[in-house]
Design a protein around this nucleic acid. Structure first.
Lengths: 344, 344
DNA sequence: TTGTATGCGTTATCAT
DNA sequence: ATGATAACGCATACAA
């Protein structure tokens, strides 16, 4: 009578119970096709009977694979990252992989620490956000031979594997929409640019669009704010308090959260959107299409991006060499928050 | 000259380089206080010099601790779970732990698979959502000696460790607010109740409140919908199309996403909120306080809940026996979407 | 305080 | 197709 106390069953226990070697048990677990059906059946019965569950650490140690992938993102408070991560998780799960998640709070030094922590946990691959990183972070990844991919940004000269889109171009295009409408004084409520290439690129895109029309962005019309509704409201008030000849008639917001804040504050101040002020956002949150007026914004394929990133990493782990650069399209969603400037 | 090729340094390499034993290196890594400063310094120098990073799998195998905690949630698409997870992650990181995240898509069978996958990865503890689970899930957890805690729900007779709040009571109280205003015909747009005790409890709370006033919930006034803005809109239309004598004058929505959908659709239909229809939500998303009118809703302490859950698990791992039941308070946030029924 | 030596549960190589 | 056995990198009980 085998001891049946606190002892969780291991490969050896199953092997003994089934009258085979541990090697065979390992095979029915990892390459069932290699073992004769009769034996396989016997082993599987014992596995179920004893309630065996694999010991990941031992597996990882012996095989040098953890079946785990890490993702390090700025925050989960933003709906758009959350849904991207959700997509990554779905893909990984399908492939039998598990997600290790870490958050940086938009701090590159913290990102380094998180990446290190995940590497120590033995992740087989890593997904990062953006192009801005502590050089040491990427060096560590390379040195450890850990495949990685950056997301949310794509530039022709990207020095590392990336799946994303051209933030500057998207911002340029939606700004062009504003200019085509006849606006000449554009205001910008941007995200915090420190350590955030996406926020910087978006501003650059706006500036480029303005420049192509011999316009430029007035220093006072550019405000950086954390991505929160209340911050969008505050920034909006600040912008509207500007002198007549500077005050923008149209606003580019670094993301939809800021844009929603701006729209709400406008309405709260008794200003009509878009009659009195046009507002555009970036990201296309689920809510944006539903609010009234609907928010004109840039649709970002966050779900597809997550799926592509996961697939890329999975392919690398599988020994393939997939195309390391993947540019996704963005769409300008023209809805109700933009119109021609009122004649005054 | 030591081979300096593809070989990542391990404990032995550090030990050799520093002229000490692997045991000593292990100690400077895990209990620095136990090693004389002089030696420690020598070891630390080599660790930095060789760029050593711990091998988690080996560590876990030898110590039976992975320094990892799992969380299994319904989805990340809902902002409220995302921010709860964010809080968990922050806490775990502070404590040197890493989060393994898995998503169930509100499917209890899938939850079982995910829990199993995380256990196989060797998590030292697990955080679940809600009271509804496949019995096998909890049995596995117990058997593996994996400390766990359920969140988002608290009932006096909770059979398992939990940190959460009383969904029924909160729903009861906010419904009471509606009744106190003079409403007698209440409609409910609930979440999908299958496998979701929170959604069921919330409905139960509404019914209890009605019953205390000798009222009851008309069969046609209860609609179950997935938590999406568009679903809230659809449900709202359905409810408003009801005959005069049944059509509700006030709506309880299973969460703020549905409530926002209802409010938007009302406005879209030309109905005034709250003059023509009162609407309440549940969760208090960041947006809810900002929209106009502000959404009357139940404030849920998701951040604190996440922190408590993480702390509980951490304490268990640390060998403590913290109080396994933790009830958090909810607040009724009365804002602009509720008013007395119009006299008609 | 430091070193020695054993074992953790698998996978994988090599026989058979 | 199956079995025996040597790593895998580290923590830890024990010895010194």
């Amino acid at each position: 009578m085998p001891d049946k106390q606190n002892h969780l069953p291991n490969l050896q226990d199953i092997a003994t119970a089934a009258g085979v070697s541990t090697a065979t048990v390992s095979r029915v677990l990892n390459s069932p096709a290699d073992v004769r059906p009769a034996l396989r059946e016997k082993v599987e019965v014992q596995i179920r009977k004893l309630g065996y569950v694999r010991h990941g650490a031992a597996r990882a140690l012996a095989s040098a694979r953890s079946h785990t992938v890490g993702a390090v993102i700025p925050t989960l408070e933003s709906a758009i990252f959350a849904s991207g991560v959700n997509a990554v998780e779905n893909r990984l799960t399908e492939a039998g992989y598990t997600l290790l998640l870490a958050v940086t709070n938009y701090d590159l030094q913290h990102e380094y620490e998180q990446v290190k922590a995940l590497i120590e946990r033995g992740v087989d691959g890593m997904i990062l956000v953006g192009r801005d990183h502590d050089p040491a972070t990427l060096i560590m990844l390379e040195r450890q031979g850990c495949p990685y991919v950056t997301t949310w940004t794509y530039t022709a000269d990207a020095p590392h594997p990336c799946v994303g889109f051209d933030n500057a171009d998207a911002a340029h295009r939606i700004t062009a929409h504003l200019l085509a409408l006849g606006h000449t004084r554009i205001g910008v409520i941007a995200g915090i640019t420190s350590g955030n290439d996406r926020a910087r690129e978006r501003i650059a895109g706006v500036k480029a669009a303005l420049k192509s029309q011999q316009l430029n962005l007035h220093r006072k019309c550019l405000i950086e704010k954390p991505y929160e509704v209340s911050e969008g409201r505050d920034a909006f008030r600040t912008l509207m308090a500007l002198p007549n000849d500077i005050r923008p008639t149209a606003l580019f917001c670094g993301n939809d959260v800021l844009a929603v804040g701006a729209v709400l504050e406008a309405q709260h101040m008794g200003l009509k959107v878009p009659q009195n002020i046009s507002i555009v956002g970036f990201d296309d949150l689920p809510l944006s299409a539903h609010m009234s007026p609907g928010l004109t914004t840039v649709h970002v394929p966050s779900r597809r991006m997550g799926e592509h990133a996961a697939d890329y990493i999975l392919a690398c782990i599988g020994g393939e060499s997939p195309d390391p650069r993947n540019k996704l399209p963005t769409d300008i969603m023209i809805r109700g928050t933009t119109a021609r400037p009122s004649k005054t």
